[in-house]
Design a protein around this nucleic acid. Sequence first.
DNA 1: AATTAGCACTCAACCACCTCGAGTGCTAAA
DNA 2: TTTAGCACTCGAGGTGGTTGAGTGCTAATT
Lengths: 360, 360
Amino acid sequence: MQGGGSELNERKKLILKAIIEAHVKEGEPVGSKYLTQNKQIALSSATIRNEMAELESLGYLEQPYTSAGRVPSESGYRFYVNSLMQKYRMSQNELARMNALAKSRLAEIDRLLESATRLAAGLTNYTSIAIKPKQSTAVITKFKTVLLDKHLFMLVMIDGMGNIKTRQITSDEEINEETLAHLENELNARIANKRIDEITVSLVMEIERSFGEGEGIISSVIKTVCETLGEPEGGDLKMAGVNHLLEYPEFSDAREFKELLGVLEEKRDILKLVSDSDLDEDGPQVLIGSENVLEEMKNSTMVFQKIKSNGKVVGAIGIIGPRRMDYSKVISTVEYIAQNISLMLNSSLSLPEAFGEDEN
Amino acid sequence: MQGGGSELNERKKLILKAIIEAHVKEGEPVGSKYLTQNKQIALSSATIRNEMAELESLGYLEQPYTSAGRVPSESGYRFYVNSLMQKYRMSQNELARMNALAKSRLAEIDRLLESATRLAAGLTNYTSIAIKPKQSTAVITKFKTVLLDKHLFMLVMIDGMGNIKTRQITSDEEINEETLAHLENELNARIANKRIDEITVSLVMEIERSFGEGEGIISSVIKTVCETLGEPEGGDLKMAGVNHLLEYPEFSDAREFKELLGVLEEKRDILKLVSDSDLDEDGPQVLIGSENVLEEMKNSTMVFQKIKSNGKVVGAIGIIGPRRMDYSKVISTVEYIAQNISLMLNSSLSLPEAFGEDEN
DNA sequence: AATTAGCACTCAACCACCTCGAGTGCTAAA
DNA sequence: TTTAGCACTCGAGGTGGTTGAGTGCTAATT
C-alpha cells in the first residue's frame, strides 16, 4: 500500500504532486484539463488522463464518482508527505511570531504549552493541541509546605520527573509554623520516594504518633498525597482554534464534527494516541486519516511532535485538521515550535538530575 | 415589550405555556391542532387559533412564515421564565450526581469549577462554562518562597482577595535558603500591599542594595510580580460539553456555530458579559437571545449564577444553549450547583478576613 | 511507441415545475 | 363566545430535464 513509490517514474510523481497541491488549495477534485495549465506539465489532457488512471490503480488517487476529477487517497497523501513534499519556507511574519514565543521565557511548562497552542492555531488555521502526557507520578521525591493562613496551608510536591504539584489543604484546627515544619519533615522522611502501595497504614500511624496533638490534618494530607500519586493525573490537554475547523467543507457535516469534538473534549483518547506513538521518534509525526486508530478521526489528520527536556518527553504539540491539509506548512510549524520549546526548556538550567540528592 | 404579562388572561397563559413546552420538546413550530391533544386545553383548534393570533400581536409568538405553526419569541421565553415556568423536580439520579460533587471536597476553586462544568454539561446536555472573574489583583498581601532546586524556586503570592498564585522562577546563579528567606522578607516589607504603580525603580533598587551579591534574581522576581499584578489575569474560563450543542438543529448552521465557538474560545467577551451583569443579583440570571450584548450570541441563551464565598464573588457557573432550551431544568441545575459550591467554599473555613493581620 | 485529438458517455449539480399537506384567517352557524 | 367549514398560503419534497465538467476509449498523428 505504501511501497516506497519507487514504481513511480518522474512524470507520475510530478502529476501526483500537482494534483495534491491543487486539491489542497482548491478543495475540489482535480481534473486532467486543470493540470494542463501547470507549466511544469507540458502534456495534453489525454496523456494526463492516462497517467491519472494508472495512479488510481496504484492506489494513490481516488474518484468520488465516475467522471469526477481525482482526489488524493490516504496513500497518496502519505507518499506525498514521505517523498514529494518540499520544505515550507516561513514568511518573515511567521518567523517573528514564533520568535516572540521564545522571547516570552515562560518558565512553567503549562503556561508555555498554552501559549504554544494558541500560536500554532493562529499560524496554521487549524486546531492545535498541546499535551502533557500522563506520566506516572510514581513517587514524590520531596515535600514542601507553606503556611498560608491559620487554617490553610499549601503542600508542594515534587515528583520523580521534576514536576511540581501544589495542593491547598484546610484544617479545622489551627496550624502553626512548627507543626507544619514537623509535618514536612515527617513526610520527607517517611513518605518521600515511596510508591503508593508502599504507603501502609502503619506508616501513617507512625507519623501520627510522632505528633503529640494536632494530628488532625495528617489524614487529609495523606489522602491528598495518595490522590496525587494514584490519579491517572497529569494527562492534560489544551486546545485552541477549534473553530477554525468549521472553515473547511470537510467538517460541514455536523455529526462528524461533533464526534471529533467529543474526542477532543474527552481528552483521554487523544492522550493515549500520542502516548502510544513511537517514543524514539524525535521529529514530527503525521497520522493521516485511518492511520489514527480512533474511529472518530478517520477523516482527520494529526501532526504532532514530542517535546523533550533533558532527554525526557515532557509534552507534545500538535495540529488537527482535515486530511486535505497543507502538510508542508503544518509540519514545519509544528516542528519549529516543538524544537523551540525544547530548547527553551533545556536552556532554563536542568532540573531532574539535581533532585533527590539535595538535602532530605 | 415585557410588560409583566398582566394583560394575559389565564387561558392565554395556559396556551402560551403549552406552546413553549411543546416547542422546546419537539423543536418545531406548534400548530393549533397539535394543542387540542392537550387535555388541559379543552378548546377547538379554531378558538386556539384566535388566541394564538392575539398572543402573536402581543409579541409573545412568532410565525416563521404564513401558515406555519407558531414559535415563541424572545419576549415569549422571557415571560415564560418570569411567570409561567414551574420548578423542575430533579430525579434521584440527578440529585445523586450533584451530591457526588459535594462529597469530593475539592479545596481549590479551580479544580472545583472544572468538575462543576463537567457535571453541569453532563446533566443538561448543553455547553457549560465556569468562570473565574478577572478580579483586579490590585495588590499582593503576602509573599512566600519555596526553594525547589539549586537554580529554581517557587514564588507564592497571596492577593487581597485570598487568591493564591504560584510562579516558578529560575536563576542562573545558585540560590540557597538564606538568600531566599532574605528575598521573602524584602518582598513582604517593600512590595506587599503596593499597587503596581507604586512599585518604583527606586524601591527595587533599595531591595537590590540590601542584597550584597546574588541580586541577579531580583529583576526577574520583580518582573514576575509586576506581570501578576498587571495582567488582565485571573479571568479564566473553562468549558465542557461543547459538542452537545451540535445535537440541536439550531446550530446545524456551521457559520453561526463557528462564531459562537469563537467567542467561547476567545474567553474575553464572555468574561466581560458575566462581570458586567448585575452584581447584587444572587439567583440565577438568564440572558435570552439578544439580551446577550454579544452579536454572536443573539440566537443563544446563557443561564448563569455567581458563586459567592464569604460575600465575595469568586466565580460563576453557567450553561449556554439555543434559545429554545429547557429553561426549567437548566435554571434549577445551575442554581443548585452554584449554591452547593458556595456552600462548600464557605464551610471550608473562611480565608479572606484572616489575611493581612497574620504576621507580616 | 508515445502522444494527442476526437467523441461518446457518465453523473452530480442545478433549476423549474408540481404536488402535498399542515396550518392559517375569516365567515357564518351554533 | 365558541366552533365548523372553507378557501388560501407556502415550505417541503419529489420529478424530470438540462448543463457541463470530466472521463475512457479509439484512431490519427508525431
